[in-house]
Every structure is written in structure tokens, then in C-alpha cells.
């Protein structure tokens, strides 16, 4: 069983590594953007699905990381990778700050607070156009000057793997238990000795840091930044990705992001209908398959598999 899983993983890794040679430049670009969204959806899932800290301000950290990285490179002539790192760190620090000031706020209040924070930041980026370029956009120095996007692809893949590994390590350690305890009942968790304050700030910092990292990568890849990346509609797209895939599992959120981004592309000719469709899918998933479509599909697969094939662990879970 272990060997099979390793073989699957190796196969997946081989496909991921060979991807740039299998597709044309267009699908490569789509793949890079899909991984950008996957990092955001996964870190949102860490914050919301695992730790129960409901945030509608996640795109604000993407935009913060992106603008900070671009401006640092422009002002201080830092090398682009250093700028990206500093941008991500800044998003992390601001994320910790937001986590700190929000310690007394929960549930829908937190959702409203973070949404307001995100809108304020977007308005500031739009208004301070002498610094940010406003709606005309901020030109960002590229990370690579090569004609092909393959280097960007490998960077995005690396960032996705690293961020997933860090987040997975977190949720599978004792910390993961603490997160869940806080999600289910904060008072009870505190009474049981979980350092609620520390872990709430920590999860905000980590999730925001990865969102900022995704943003810091996005700027140099696209070459131009506009405050729109922090808009409520963009947040809606990310929420749809995570929920459709399954917002209680990092892997499900990633798969949700990859498939929704592919769908966004496949339906490009249908312009206005795309967000209608994702809104509807989000509603149907929430209403009828709350753990996401991936969990639903997985259940179907399992139901069709003879019981003897299942590992003892799976049988246990099924019961």
C-alpha cells in the first residue's frame, strides 16, 4: 500500500516536472496562474477550514505582497527574488498584526472586519497613485528574461510544493489538533490548555505570508499590477475554488483551484457567464456537498470499491 502511494506520488511528480514539455505556451501560462491560485486557496483553507478564522481579506495579503515586492525592487534596486521574499515577509507581519488586533473578533464579525480591511487597502492602492500607479497599473520587473515561461513554471511549482509541505506539516503535527480545537470551541480549547492567542496569531501570519508570497510571484510574472487583484470578486473566485474542491483539506483546495482555473480558461468565450456559473457551483456545493465535490467524488469511488480492497484504516473511517 505504501509502495503504491509512493508510486502514485512519483508519477504525479513526473507529470508536474514534465508539464512544460507536454503543453504549449498558453497552457503553460494557465498552469502557472492555476498554481498561483492554488497557493492562495490552500492558505485560505488553512486559515478558514482548519483554524476556523473566517477571512474575506485574503486577497489583500496577495495584493500587499505583490505591491511591496514590486516597490522594494523599484526603490532599493533589490534583486527580484529578495524583493519577493521581503514582500512575503511583510504580508506575514501584517497578517500577524491583523490576527493580533482581531483576537476578540470571531465568525461573521471577523469576515466583515477582514473584508473591510481588504477594501480599505484596495482603495489606498488606488488612491495613492503617485506611489502605486493607481488603476493605470504598476510596472513590475520580471524575474526571468527568457522567452519561454518554463522557468516561471518551475518557480511556481517549487513555491506550491514548499508552501503545501509547510502547511501540511503544520496541520499534521500537534498544532493541527490545536487549530481544530480552536475552530470547534475556543473557550474549551483555552480551558484545555491550548495557547489560543499564540495559535490564532500564528495561523494568520502563516496563511497571510503564503498569500503574500503568491502575490510577490504574480507581479514579476504578469509584469503589471492593478489594485483589482484585491477586489471582492477575486476573493469570490478564490472562495469558490476552495469550497468547490473542499475547504477542509489542503489537497482538495489545491485541486479545486487547479480545476476552476482550467474551467475559467475553457469558458473564456462565455465572458459574463463564468462568475454566474461559479457562484451557482459554490451554492450547490455548500447546500448539497459541504465537504466539497472532491470528497463527494472520493466517497463514490470508495463505495464502488470492494471492502476487501480497503485498508483497515479506510474501513474504520467508513464506519
Amino acid at each position: 500500500m505504501r509502495a503504491l502511494r509512493l508510486a502514485c506520488l512519483a508519477g504525479l511528480a513526473a507529470i508536474a516536472l514534465a508539464f512544460p514539455h507536454l503543453v504549449n505556451a498558453y497552457w503553460l501560462t494557465v498552469g502557472i496562474l492555476a498554481m498561483f491560485y492554488a497557493i492562495i486557496a490552500a492558505s485560505w483553507t488553512l486559515l478558514v477550514g482548519y483554524a476556523g478564522q473566517f477571512s474575506f481579506g485574503h486577497m489583500a495579503f496577495v495584493s500587499l505582497g505583490a505591491y511591496a515586492a514590486a516597490l522594494l525592487v523599484q526603490w532599493l534596486a533589490l534583486p527580484v527574488p529578495i524583493g519577493m521574499l521581503v514582500g512575503a515577509l511583510l504580508a506575514m507581519v501584517v497578517g500577524a498584526g491583523v490576527g493580533f488586533v482581531c483576537l476578540r473578533i470571531r465568525g461573521p464579525y471577523l469576515a466583515i472586519f477582514t473584508m473591510a480591511f481588504s477594501e480599505v487597502l484596495r482603495i489606498v492602492f488606488l488612491t495613492e497613485n503617485e506611489i502605486t500607479g493607481g488603476a493605470s497599473g504598476l510596472n513590475v520587473a520580471p524575474l526571468f528574461t527568457s522567452r519561454s515561461n518554463a522557468p516561471y513554471y518551475y518557480v511556481a511549482l517549487g513555491l506550491l510544493v514548499v508552501s503545501l509541505a509547510v502547511m501540511a506539516a503544520m496541520v499534521h503535527s500537534r498544532w493541527g489538533l490545536f487549530f481544530r480545537a480552536i475552530r470547534e470551541n475556543e473557550q474549551a480549547a483555552a480551558a484545555a490548555g491550548v495557547k489560543v492567542v499564540r495559535f490564532r496569531i500564528l495561523v494568520f501570519a502563516v496563511a497571510s505570508g503564503f498569500a503574500g508570497l503568491a502575490g510577490a510571484f504574480y507581479g514579476p510574472f504578469i509584469g503589471i499590477l492593478t489594485p483589482d487583484i484585491g477586489s471582492v470578486d477575486q476573493m469570490g473566485l478564490v472562495v469558490a475554488m476552495a469550497v468547490i474542491g473542499g475547504s477542509e483539506s489542503l489537497v482538495a483546495a489545491v485541486i479545486g483551484a487547479l480545476s476552476v482555473e482550467a474551467l475559467v480558461e475553457a469558458l473564456r468565450a462565455y465572458g459574463q457567464w463564468r462568475l454566474v456559473l461559479f457562484g451557482l457551483l459554490l451554492l450547490l456545493t455548500m447546500r448539497f456537498a459541504r465537504n466539497g465535490l472532491l470528497a463527494l467524488a472520493w466517497e463514490q469511488v470508495r463505495r464502488l470499491t470492494p471492502a476487501s480492497w480497503r485498508t483497515p484504516h479506510a474501513r474504520e473511517a467508513a464506519e
Partner: peptide, 18 residues
């Protein structure tokens, strides 16, 4: 409360775009 937030957020995306 999470259900309420996500469903009404989904309704808003749907209505605005339709």
C-alpha cells in the same frame, strides 16, 4: 455561522453577475 457566511456570499456573487 460558516455556512451562513459562505452561502450568502455565494448568493451575492451569483446575483451580481446574473
Amino acid at each position: 455561522s460558516d455556512y451562513g457566511i459562505l452561502v450568502t456570499f455565494g448568493i451575492s456573487i451569483f446575483l451580481r453577475n446574473i
